[in-house]
């Protein structure tokens, strides 16, 4: 045994024991940043809940694409377990990195891989089901017969949100007019409240009196303008009803916080090697009802939406996913 090998062996042993002692979870946010009031912030809230119960974790906000692999490897090498990531962009890289660290468990939210390594778990949400429900509510609340959708960056995932919304609205009122706009084509579209505000005004000018924002930080501007102009809005991912009480019809919940919390709680015993799909049945998606929007949601509205919810869970009602054939039956984007 050469000196180098001895040294490496000692270092490896040290790293292993160090890892066993630590075994904290780590969380890697997507490029949108930790405080986007929406997707990443939901992950942060889940982690904070874990921390409030006495756990501890380390997190990083990515700044560049090349850091994805770097952060994954550095956390895995430092003994963090499980390593949780948000956003689909990191999934392909995670799939490769995970093979080098078989003792570390990796979790990704929103991602997709053709083959899932045994130590990777992918968590997806049925956003179209939740969007369907809020689409129904939008159509029922609308007096003008026109509802709006404002997406963030124009990618299939956001069309997926919009498609569920359009199907829900059409289910209530087949003649309803749906105006859909995307904020932009670059990642800055996730954090452009000014543009979100302009789009909202443009949609109001075309007659929309309910707008649904699926646009990350851009949605803050949409909700603000809707409240200022006296129309209703619908929030996304986190419960955003509180932002403008009495002005936000509801929020399409995507329980990223629950997914993160559960993964951290499970720790090293986390089940991996497949997909977890969280839909209405698992309460992974849904619509928000609290004191802030209770006066806006009529009993009739609630009954209709809850009935649709049960039908979707039972499989009697199918909401078409945009991914099924990259097109939407209810709206042409």
């Amino acid at each position: 045994m050469t000196l180098m090998q001895k040294f490496l062996g000692a270092a490896a042993a040290l790293a292993l024991t160090g890892g066993a002692a630590l075994a904290e979870p780590a969380l890697i946010y997507d490029l949108g940043g930790k405080f986007d009031k929406s997707f990443n912030e939901a992950a942060f809230n889940g982690a904070e809940l874990f921390a409030a119960e006495g756990g501890s974790y380390r997190d990083i906000e990515l700044q560049s694409e090349a850091q994805r692999e770097q952060a994954l490897r550095r956390f895995a090498e430092a003994g963090f377990n499980p390593v949780i990531t948000t956003g689909f962009s990191i999934a392909p890289i995670m799939g490769e990195v995970a093979l080098d660290y078989p003792d570390t468990k990796f979790v990704n939210i929103d991602g997709w891989l053709p083959e899932v390594p045994p130590n990777v778990q992918l968590i997806g949400f049925q956003e179209h089901q939740g969007s369907y429900l809020v689409g129904m509510m939008a159509a029922m609340a609308s007096k003008t017969g026109t509802v709006g959708f404002i997406g963030g960056m124009d990618i299939p995932l956001i069309r997926h949100f919009g498609c569920g919304y359009a199907q829900g609205a059409k289910a209530v009122n087949p003649d309803i007019k749906i105006i859909a706009n995307m904020t932009g084509t670059t990642p800055t579209a996730w954090n452009d409240p000014v543009k979100g505000s302009e789009l909202t005004k443009a949609q109001i000018a075309q007659g929309a009196d309910v707008v649904y924002a699926a646009a990350g930080g851009t949605g803050v501007g949409v909700l603000q303008t809707a409240a200022d102009e006296g129309i209703l809005s619908i929030g996304v991912d986190s419960n955003q009803n509180y932002l403008h009480p009495g002005k936000v019809l509801t929020s399409m919940l995507k329980r990223v916080d629950v997914a993160v919390y559960n993964s951290m709680k499970a720790g090293e015993n986390l089940e991996t090697g497949g997909f977890t799909v969280l839909g209405l049945a698992e309460e992974g998606v849904g619509y928000a009802l609290d004191d802030n929007n209770a006066p806006l949601v009529s009993d009739e509205m609630k009954m209709a939406v809850d009935k649709a919810r049960e039908m979707i869970i039972a499989g009697d009602l199918e909401v078409t996913a945009y991914y099924a054939n990259d097109s939407c039956p209810a709206h042409q984007f």
Binding site: A91, P92, P156, T186, Y323
Partner: peptide
């Protein structure tokens, strides 16, 4: 710069994206 971003987005989402993948990116 903006036109380039829009062109790339269009090409990646509609032309070069492998079937089934969500991310606007080409295959490996």
């Amino acid at each position: 710069n903006f036109i380039a971003a829009a062109v790339l987005n269009y090409v990646l989402v509609n032309v070069l994206r492998p079937k089934g993948a969500q991310e606007p990116a080409t295959g490996f």
